[in-house]
């Protein structure tokens, strides 16, 4: 479970996130959406312990991130949008390295099904330079899943994936949620959020605009029951959808 209470992050005079509170229960997938500069990345970084919040608390699987950061981080996995890998480690060696960091003794047997599921079983001896962008992204995901985290943060997970990879990624997220993980998915792809997430949190200028199940949010902001999440998003953030620019 993820429990964020009164999270505030200031950079000098500028407040990136203001008094943000939300909860993600096991089995739930919460979509974190908002326009550029809304504070999504800052929220993710604070919630994963990468940067300290100015105010507020974050609990990961019942562990206070501030009091016991190591204990909290043992329970979470963070998949950044840009896969940054070690040039000289193979796929398998990346998993070995991460296993040691998380103290996973049986990492090889755990890695087998993960690599198979991500269609990377035959890539274990390859270096990052030999992997496509999508494969690198999959390796990051494999590393994140190796220690069976109960809390998972995805930051734009579909970047660089091919259609097959996108479908499998969505399925993986749904399966992880079914298995009891609490997931936060930050993305600009509202169709992905609508498809995968059970809940949505809309941020604007560092503040929560809406939070709840997709049905609740739709009921609150949409004019018509069949309105898409995109319509709801623009209404919630009061940003008029710009008409497409056509060449003269």
């Amino acid at each position: 479970m993820i429990e964020v209470t009164g999270l505030t992050k200031r950079y000098g005079e500028f407040t990136a996130v203001r008094d943000l509170s939300f909860t993600v229960q096991p089995g739930e997938v919460m979509g974190l959406v908002g326009p550029n500069g809304a504070g999504k990345t800052t929220t993710l970084r604070c919630a994963t312990g990468i940067i300290p919040p100015t105010l507020g608390s974050v609990w990961i699987g019942g562990v206070d991130l501030k009091e016991d950061p190591v204990g909290a981080k043992r329970r979470l996995a963070f998949m950044p949008d840009e896969p940054r890998l070690f040039d000289h480690l193979t796929v398998e060696q990346h998993l070995n390295f991460v296993a040691r960091l998380h103290n996973v003794a049986d990492w090889q047997s755990r890695a087998e099904p993960i690599l198979a599921d991500l269609e990377m079983a035959d890539k274990r001896a390859l270096l990052p330079a030999e992997l496509s962008r999508g494969m690198k992204q999959k390796l990051v995901i494999a590393c994140g899943l190796l220690h069976s985290p109960s809390v998972i943060f995805f930051d734009e997970p579909l970047t660089g994936l091919d259609p097959g990879g996108i479908r499998r990624m969505k399925e993986t997220m749904r399966r992880l949620a079914r298995d009891g993980a609490a997931i936060i998915l930050s993305s600009h792809l509202l169709s992905l959020v609508e498809e995968v997430c059970s809940h949505v949190l809309i941020l604007k200028a560092g503040e929560k605009v809406a939070d709840g199940s997709i049905a609740d949010i739709r009921a609150r902001f949409a004019v018509a029951p069949e309105a898409s999440l995109e319509d709801v998003f623009f209404r919630a953030t009061e940003t008029p959808a710009a008409p497409p620019v056509l060449p003269p």
Partner: peptide, 10 residues
């Protein structure tokens, strides 16, 4: 690399 290393449980 701090945003990666700081996410390690160490």
């Amino acid at each position: 690399q701090l945003d990666i290393t700081k996410a390690y449980p160490l």
